[in-house]
Design a binder for these strands. Structure first.
Lengths: 354, 354
DNA sequence: CTGTTAGCGCCTTCAT
DNA sequence: ATGAAGGCGCTAACAG
C-alpha cells in the first residue's frame, strides 16, 4: 500500500497554475533575482492562491539540510528552582520559527557519551542543521564531537577554556553578583556573605568573583563564603553556618535562586525575617522568586535576547558554511543581567509578626 | 552548487556490503518476514557494521510520514508557578523517542486561530504525524480543525463536552481537591475555604467539586469560596477576604499553586504563619511548592505517566489510521494525582517567631 | 530569463 | 525469496 493521498500543494501544481515550469517557481521563491519581475509576481500570486508551502522533507532530501535545529532536553531536577528552561525553549523556538527553522528536541541519557550518541543519531537520521548547547564546560566532549562533524552549533554559556572558535551567548554572572552585592551594601550591610558553587563550576567562580570585587572595593571582609552544591538544603545549611558565626552575616548573596530559597528556609527555621532581619539575593529570576513571600531579589537573565542571538549565530554559521566550510566566524555575545529588587533585600515596612 | 558530501550511510551502501539489493535491506528492516533468516542476519550485520541509520527525510518523502510529533509551546506567564511544561516536555520526548518518534515544537501566537494556522503550516511543511494538545476546552476549534484534516492527535486534558471521539489523558482534579480537603479536615479544620477559577473553566469546576463533595460529606459549610483568575494577586486578595469574614477560614484549599502562593503572601502580610495559623494546599506540585518556606502541600500530577500514555495513544491512532482511516479508537485515561503533604497544611512544631 | 534533465534515499509494486 | 523499475517533491546544473 502506497502513500495516502494528501492535501498538500506541490511545486508542480503551482507551476501549472502560473503557466511556468516547476523550476521557475522554485527560483521565484529561493532565488528571486533569477526570475523576471512580472513572472515572479504571477508565480507568487499562484502560490498565495493555492496556499503552497514547500515540503521540507523533499527539500531536506535534496539539500541535505532540514531546517531543523536540535536542542537537548535535560531532566528537570526536582530540587531546582531555575526553570528558565521552559521560557528559554519558548523564546528559542519563536526565534527559530522567525528565521525559518524549527526546533527538534534531542533526548539523551545523562553523561556526555550518551549525549554525543544522541546527537549523532539525530544528525544521521534527520540531518539537523545545527545544535544549541547549554551549559558547556571546560574540555567539553560535546563541543569536540560537533566540531569534528562540522555541524554548526552555538552554546548558551561561554567557552571556559578560552576556545575562541566556539560561538556562544552568555550572561555576565560577575556583573550580576556585583550588582547584587552593591545593592545590599547600599542598604548599609557590612557583613555580606556569599553562598555559591564549588571550584569545579566555572560559572560559579564567575559569579563569586563579582561578590569578591564589590567587597574588596568597599573594604568589606570576605571571610563568609561557602562553596556548595546547588540545592535548597545546601543553601539552608550554609546559611545556618553563616548566621552562627561569631560575627554573623547580615546579608547573603547567593549564586542561584535555589540557594537563596534555602537561605529563606533557614531564616524561617530561626524565626528571622528575610529583608527585615537578613537581606537575601538570588540569581536567575526563576518564577519562584516572584511568588515567594517576601519576594526574592534576584538577577534576571535576558533570555529573550539569548534565544534570538543563539539562533542568529547558527543562522550565520550555516550561511558561512555554504560559502566556505573551513571559514570560522566565532561569535561571542555577553549580555547583562538585570537586578530585580524585591522585598527580600530591603528592610521594608515593619510587618507585624506575632 | 549541489549538496555537500556527507558521512551518511545509505541503504545502497549497506546492500553492496551485504551483497544484496537495496530492496532486501529495506525489507530486512521493515518487513522482516519477507526475507530469509540467513540473508536477514547478513544484512543486519552490515547495518551494524556500517552504522546505518535510515534517512528520515527520504522516508518521509516516500511515506508521507515524518515520525515527527508536534507539541505547542505556550509562553510561560511570569506570574505563574505551574511550570510542569518543562518536565512534561522532557518525559513526552523520552516516550516519543522510545517509540521511534521525535518531538518538534510548534510556535503559535495566542488565540486558537493563530494556533490552527501554525498547525496547518507545520503539517504542510513537515508532514508531522501527530499532534499533542494541552488544555482543551469546550468546543475547541483546534480539535475540530485537526479532526477535519484527519491527523492523529491526543490531548492532555479531557474533552469537556462529552466528545467521546477525542483521545485524552487527564488527571482527576476532583479527586485531588477532595484529597486535599479531607487532609485538612483530618487536622481538625472546620472552616475550609476554596479559592478556584471562574465558571468558564471546566478544569476549575472539576477541582472545586472535589472540595464541595468532601465538605458536604462532613457537613461543613461551603460559603467560603472564591472564583478568580489564576494569579498570585487574585489568590492573595481572595485570602484576605476569607480571613476578614466574620467566621474566618482556618484552612484554604486552592485550585493551583499560584493561588496558594498568593494565600501565603496574604498571610505574610498579616503576620500569620502558614500551617500553624492557617492551613494551605495548592495544586500541581510546581517546583516552587517544594522550595518555599514552609513547603506547600499540593497535588502532584503523574506527568511521566501522562507523557507515556499520550505517546502511546497517538502511536495507536497512527497504526489504526494505516489500516482504516475512518476507524476511530478513542482512548481516555484518567490518572490520580498524589497528595504531597508539606508543612503548609500542618500545625507543625511551633517555630519561634519574633 | 526560462525549461529540461537528473537524482537526493527510500519504499511500494510488480516481476522473476 | 529476491531484484528492477519508478516516483515521492524539490532544486543544482546545464542547456536553450
Amino acid at each position: 500500500m502506497g502513500p495516502q493521498p494528501h492535501g498538500h500543494v506541490t511545486l508542480a501544481q503551482v507551476a501549472t497554475r502560473a503557466g511556468v515550469s516547476a523550476q521557475s517557481v522554485s527560483n521565484a521563491l529561493n532565488n528571486p533575482e533569477r526570475v523576471a519581475a512580472a513572472t515572479r509576481e504571477r508565480i507568487l500570486a499562484a502560490v498565495a492562491e493555492l496556499g503552497y508551502e514547500p515540503n521540507l522533507s523533499a527539500r531536506a532530501l535534496r539539500n541535505r539540510s532540514s531546517s531543523l535545529i536540535a536542542v537537548k532536553m535535560r531532566p528537570a531536577r526536582p530540587d531546582k528552582a531555575s526553570l528558565l528552561m521552559d521560557d528559554f525553549l519558548y523564546v528559542l523556538n519563536a526565534a527559530a520559527v522567525d528565521a525559518g527553522y524549527h526546533l527538534i528536541l534531542c533526548h539523551a541519557e545523562d553523561g556526555s557519551a550518551g549525549e554525543i550518541k544522541a546527537y549523532r543519531d539525530l544528525l544521521k537520521k534527520t540531518s539537523v542543521d545545527a545544535f544549541i548547547l547549554a551549559e558547556t564546560h571546560r574540555n567539553d566532549d560535546r563541543v569536540a564531537a560537533l566540531r569534528s562533524w562540522g555541524v554548526p552549533f552555538a552554546s548558551f554559556g561561554r567557552s571556559w577554556d578560552g576556545d575562541d572558535g566556539l560561538a556562544w551567548v552568555d550572561v555576565d554572572g560577575r556583573a550580576g553578583t556585583r550588582a547584587a552585592t552593591e545593592h545590599v551594601a547600599a542598604q548599609g550591610h557590612r557583613r555580606i556573605g556569599h553562598i555559591g558553587w564549588g571550584a569545579e563550576s566555572e560559572l560559579g567562580q564567575d559569579r563569586r568573583d563579582g561578590w569578591l570585587e564589590a567587597c574588596r572595593e568597599r573594604e568589606l571582609e570576605t571571610d563568609l563564603q561557602a562553596a556548595v552544591v546547588d540545592s535548597l538544603d545546601a543553601g539552608r545549611q550554609a546559611a545556618h553556618r553563616m548566621l552562627d558565626a561569631s560575627r554573623p552575616a547580615t546579608a547573603l548573596v547567593c549564586a542561584s535562586d535555589t540557594l537563596a530559597l534555602g537561605v529563606m528556609r533557614a531564616l524561617h527555621e530561626r524565626g528571622l525575617r528575610p529583608g527585615a532581619d537578613v537581606a537575601i539575593t538570588g540569581y536567575d529570576d526563576s518564577p519562584t522568586a516572584a511568588l515567594v513571600s517576601p519576594g526574592l531579589t534576584t538577577l534576571r537573565q535576558p533570555i529573550d535576547e539569548v534565544g534570538r542571538q543563539l539562533i542568529q549565530i547558527v543562522d550565520n554559521l550555516m550561511a558561512g558554511d555554504l560559502r566556505q566550510p573551513a571559514y570560522a566566524l566565532p561569535q561571542h555575545v555577553l549580555l547583562e543581567p538585570e537586578l530585580i529588587v524585591r522585598a527580600s533585600s530591603l528592610p521594608g515596612p515593619r510587618t507585624p509578626v506575632r
